[in-house]
């Protein structure tokens, strides 16, 4: 099993305020991971370090064996919760940007996703609602043929009906040679697609493993397990 992402003893922050605490993780290809935990548990920090936006205080992370840098950004598609797309650009400009900057970006696929999400190319990014911006971010992210997809709360700001569409879209883009890590509060919508779950608490992994195995052993859903991990 090829490891797409390896985190070795990664810490971020100092003294009491550590966002990540000696985090060890191995992400294998061909699997969909659920990165679960309450706000402040370190999910976004983890993603941002993997994406090269944050630098770890100690420890190291590699993607396909490369240390985080320009080489890994080629292989990593990160969708942050932040509003990062140029507001003054039209959607077709965003597509051109991605086409120019990322070799693995498939413009046609992106157009398909846009249609699926009911977005038009001539819309200006700043005029989009929160939900539309979220769908646009996801469309351009999944239209890349990356080895590692990091989706930070992809279902946030999406109405319940569209969430199923989004999950379908994510699974449509999922391949054997890639790994997808989805962080979310909305566990129930993701139950059927998660291969493995990783529970983070205060910057460290408190529980991780095969989702079906947890269901078998604990006779409960991952959502219930979530409640158990963080309230019990």
């Amino acid at each position: 099993m090829t490891s797409v992402l390896i985190a070795e003893n990664v810490s971020k922050g100092f003294f009491r305020n550590k966002a990540l605490h000696n985090l060890d993780l191995k992400i294998e290809e061909g699997k969909v991971y659920g990165l679960l935990g309450p706000n402040g548990s370190g999910k976004t920090t983890f993603f941002k370090i993997a994406a090269g936006l944050f630098k770890p205080t100690s420890g190291r992370m590699t993607v396909m064996g490369y240390p985080i840098g320009a080489e890994t950004k080629k292989l990593t598609a990160f969708m942050p919760t932040d509003d990062f797309l140029f507001g003054w650009m039209k959607i077709d400009g965003i597509l051109s940007f991605y086409t120019d900057m990322y070799e693995d970006f498939d413009r046609n696929k992106a157009l398909e996703y846009l249609t699926f999400m009911e977005l038009q190319e001539n819309m200006k990014v700043s005029s989009l609602s929160t939900g539309m911006k979220a769908r646009l971010k996801l469309a351009v992210t999944m239209a890349r043929k990356a080895r590692l997809y990091l989706l930070d709360e992809p279902l946030n700001g999406i109405d319940p009906i569209s969430r199923e569409k989004i999950v379908k879209m994510i699974m449509g883009a999922f391949r054997d040679d890639c790994a997808v890590i989805i962080s979310s509060h909305l566990v129930s919508e993701l139950e059927t697609i998660l291969d493995e779950v990783i529970f983070l608490d205060h910057g460290t992994v408190v529980l991780a493993g095969d989702a079906e195995k947890f269901r078998l052993e604990k006779s409960c859903s991952i959502e219930a397990l979530y409640k158990e991990v963080y309230h019990g």
């Binding site: 129930s188 139950e191 079906e212 195995k213 269901r215 078998l216 006779s219 859903s221 991952i222 219930a224």
Partner: peptide, 11 residues
Amino acid sequence: NFDNTAPIYIQ
């Protein structure tokens, strides 16, 4: 619709 409290593959 699956029962999420039991392994999906078994269902």
